[in-house]
């Protein structure tokens, strides 16, 4: 699946298989307040990748012995819906999902002002409704929006994007076809307002120069994504006030 055998992923004009330029994102959509029960929620799309995020809390931890005396406990679940992939994905958490839940939680530990809410839990639930590459980074963006929508104080908004290397060239926001036959995939999450990288992985091989160039490509795209997050949040609240 996702392996494009014999297909050129970058054509002679530098266009990618879906017509994008190397440093071009897929169309991004963001919406908040999409769920009734959650304290905050968001729907984020990077092309066909679609993530639903819900935030509950601060609330009493379900297992009370886990409560931390000096801060809120964060719980994060990144989970893929069984129908989100080409072949059905078993709903049981895979090793990949367990790892990604951890790195996404760690992307927010130093962003959420957890010291304000001792003995409570803040839960971030992320469901991949449709997977087409870049699910973890779109999930970070969705989590950031849902946290803001829940009114949870944060140092800054966060967004994520992956940079890949295909056919020797660095490209922004890789989709599944590109990821499947690419030489490297580097997911990054960043909080531009405090200039902090909160999630950083590299799967594949890059030179030192490519790493720096790829990182800067990701950071500049994330600055735009966070601007879009701000606009999404403002528009929602502007329209709420007008009612």
């Amino acid at each position: 699946m996702g392996k494009a055998v014999g297909v050129k992923l970058i054509d002679e004009y530098g266009r990618r298989h879906d017509g994008r330029l190397p440093d071009q994102m897929r169309p991004v959509r963001m919406r908040i307040n999409v769920l009734e029960n959650a304290d905050g929620s968001a729907l984020v799309e990077y092309g066909r990748t679609r993530i639903l995020a819900a935030v509950y809390g601060p609330r009493e931890p379900v297992q009370k012995f886990m409560a931390l005396p000096d801060r809120a406990l964060l719980r994060v679940r990144y989970h893929m819906a069984p129908f989100s992939t080409e072949e059905r994905k078993s709903p049981a958490p895979s090793r990949r999902e367990i790892e990604l839940s951890k790195v996404i939680r760690e992307a927010f530990e130093d962003i959420i002002l957890v010291k304000y809410f001792p003995r409570t839990a803040i839960d971030i639930f992320l469901e991949v409704l449709q997977a087409d590459g870049g699910t973890r980074t779109a999930a970070v963006t969705a989590a950031s929006l849902a946290l803001a929508n829940a009114g949870i104080p944060m140092k800054a908004l966060v967004a994520g994007v992956a940079v890949g290397k295909i056919e020797g060239q660095l490209v922004l926001d890789v989709d599944e076809i590109e990821d499947g036959s690419g030489e490297a995939d580097m997911p990054v999450a960043y909080a531009p307002d405090i200039e902090k990288i909160t999630l950083f992985q590299l799967n594949g091989v890059l030179t030192r120069e490519e790493l720096e160039k790829g990182l800067d490509m990701a950071l500049s795209a994330i600055r735009e994504l966070v601007e879009l997050e701000k606009r999404t949040l403002k528009e929602e609240y502007v329209s709420t006030e007008e009612v």
Binding site: E106, A191, R208
Partner: peptide
């Protein structure tokens, strides 16, 4: 790898790093 290429990265742990710290870490590690 032995040629000094970067063949994998994982930020592991709750905090954050600046761009400069990430690149400095990669150079120190090399």
């Amino acid at each position: 790898d032995e040629e000094g290429n970067i063949v994998g990265i994982q930020k592991s742990g709750p905090g954050a790093m600046s761009r400069e710290e990430v690149l400095k870490a990669v150079d120190i590690g090399r």
